[in-house]
């Protein structure tokens, strides 16, 4: 039980958050659209957390995260269609399989490309992301139901507050415990100085691969949740710009900070979707003009992000809570 008791405070916080959200959802105060946005923010947090493990903790820069997110989404949607999944209990294995598919692909891709560093890795992962997009666009030639560039339709809407929220909470706890385990220390050691890590006897190739696989697994679970939340998938939802979204969440929140990713994920979805509600359509096109400026300013001011390597005492994510 130490797995749960070690993060009592975080569990308490999440139960309180859950009760507040449940109350809001039941009160009918929130429109279905806003409910969907709230659930999407959990997915964004989960997927960005995967990128934070890869990039923030282990220092392996990836520009193709949305590719793994897409693999998870399409795998889960396809398996769901094959096995006629409609209830929550048969959905949970599908959720796991979506993540596992992304993890396996991440492993297979990671073996060759994690030998590369920094900007070469960035280009290779970017290439992988575009490759996934191209394959998804052409997917209906191989498997009709995937829909190709017409999109995958008819996925049942299964994801509700409980599934999205508790999947996120559970995986945040798993991630937190991994980060504070010896493997997490190895990852951070590789990020700080790969040569020194090798000198300490850390199998850097294996550890990098492990972090990458786990990060891709999280992205895959996020994608599977996305598929069963929006019940429609289109290759354009998984393109380069989406990878940038996750990257921005990680960077703004801070490299190597779970708390940062949680806050930044909530902030990001609120800003992106909130501006859609709050602003007239004319001003909407300015969103993507302002976001890059903000990104550049963060890079100049705090190149490691706002909450780099700090965890919130309040949420109980810090060490030794």
């Amino acid at each position: 039980m130490s797995f749960f008791t070690s993060a009592k405070r975080f569990l308490l916080c999440s139960i309180i958050a859950y009760l507040i959200l449940k109350g809001l959802f039941l009160s009918g105060f929130l429109t279905e659209y806003i409910q969907q946005i709230i659930l999407f923010s959990f997915i964004a947090i989960l997927t960005s957390l995967g990128l934070n493990v890869i990039y923030g903790y282990t220092g392996q820069f990836s520009l193709g995260h949305a590719g793994f997110y897409g693999i998870g989404a399409y795998t889960a949607a396809y398996l769901g269609a094959v096995f006629k999944v409609e209830s929550i209990f048969s959905f949970l294995p599908i959720l796991f399989l979506g993540g596992a598919a992304a993890g396996i692909v991440g492993y297979a891709v990671g073996v060759p490309i994690l030998r590369l560093r920094d900007d070469f890795l960035a280009i290779a992962t970017l290439g992988f992301g575009i490759l996934v997009r191209v394959l998804l666009d052409n997917s209906d030639r191989a498997i009709e139901i995937l829909g190709g560039s017409r999109g995958f339709i008819g996925i049942p809407k299964i994801v509700n507050l409980e599934i999205a929220f508790f999947t996120m909470v559970f995986l945040i706890l798993v991630t937190r415990n991994l980060i504070f385990s010896r493997y997490g220390l190895f990852w951070q050691c590789i990020k700080d100085d790969e040569l020194a890590a090798t000198a300490f006897g850390i199998n850097t190739a294996r550890m990098k691969l492990m972090a990458f696989t786990y990060g891709c697994f999280l992205a895959g679970v996020g994608g599977a949740l996305y598929a069963y939340l929006y019940s429609f998938l289109h290759p354009s939802n998984f393109d380069f710009l989406r990878s940038i979204d996750f990257l921005i969440i990680v960077i703004v929140g801070g490299m190597g900070s779970i708390t940062g990713t949680i806050y930044a994920g909530l902030l990001w979805v609120t800003v992106i979707e909130g501006l859609r509600i709050g602003l007239p359509a004319q001003a909407l096109e300015f969103r993507w003009v302002l976001i890059p400026i903000f990104l550049i300013m963060v890079m100049m001011w705090k190149p490691f992000g706002l909450l780099a390597r700090r965890e919130s005492k309040f949420l109980g994510l810090g060490k030794g809570e």
Partner: peptide
């Protein structure tokens, strides 16, 4: 750091 420069480049491109 190198990656900060790379992210800035992505930002300039998007802008």
């Amino acid at each position: 750091p190198k990656i900060a420069l790379l992210i800035t480049a992505v930002g300039v491109s998007l802008f």
